[in-house]
Design a binder for these strands. Structure first.
Lengths: 137, 137
DNA sequence: TCCTACGATGGACGGAATCCAAGTCAAGAA
DNA sequence: TTCTTGACTTGGATTCCGTCCATCGTAGGA
């Protein structure tokens, strides 16, 4: 994630303590935090960081392609820092737990030309749903 | 859609003018209205129908499996009456237009057992994204 | 026709996210 | 190093979506 900060600086980012903390909170794999969760964790290190700043920073990271927005449930969006490793999501219909998964093949190639209706299709986003072992009881 | 009303009556639905109008508004293919749009169209025929009733009715139709909820953009949910014909969605990243599409094969089968992590996976939801012909200009 | 339980109403409420005007500060200039 | 300035942060107001609730109305059986 330190390379992330380097990359951002290279793109002309002003490196503030707030942005640094948000980037640090989003480090790791299988991280799928809501903006509020990011704010809570950031506030542990930088107590007076505001929600607006967290939203701004997350939005910038998404625009830069460093983080992907995931909305699996129509509730709060989640932010996934694993943006440079293409993957899909498996969501528990019971507790909402999320796992990154790697399906076979490229989902994009399953959409035949005559089903594209002239669209320039560039992305296929797959959400698998089912009960996780804990919820299956 | 008249069969829908029959089916609902068969399930013990009390058939009110409000429910009838909501069901009629949702008739057709490639229909992906937000709750507010459904309310607006319903209000053309039944001016005093309330938002709460539209939300209630949509929720019931979803529970009964007659309509599926689609949230492609983290904004307002959309309601798709094409529930008895399994399909996926193609969304324009420019204008938000939505098309029903039928990819090859079954997306569920592309998730190998070792990628299921013990989940009882029952559904795969695919959203394709790209510019539509109009937005590509 | 009457009864009553189910459904409709609309206004209050709640969560998520955005907006905005004012204050602050990172980093280049001198 | 200090100065300067425009980019960044702040928090409160606001918007958007959706749910809740107490009350009223009515579909459909008796």
């Amino acid at each position: 994630m330190s390379d992330l900060l380097e990359r951002l600086r290279g793109r002309g980012w002003r490196l503030t303590s707030q942005r640094r903390v948000v980037a640090e909170v989003l480090d790791g794999e299988h991280v799928h935090l809501t903006a509020d969760e990011v704010h809570a964790r950031a506030a542990e290190r930088l107590p007076e960081i505001s929600r607006a700043t967290v939203y701004n920073t997350l939005g910038e990271l998404v625009t830069l392609g460093e983080v992907v927005e995931v909305s699996t449930d129509g509730r709060a969006k989640r932010y996934d820092p694993n943006a440079h490793h293409p993957h899909q999501h498996l969501v528990c219909t019971g507790c909402g737990a999320i796992r990154d998964v790697h399906p076979r093949g490229n989902p994009l190639s399953d959409l035949p030309a005559e089903q594209r209706f002239g669209f320039a299709v560039v992305q296929a986003e797959v959400t698998y749903r089912g009960l996780c072992p804990d919820c299956a009881g």
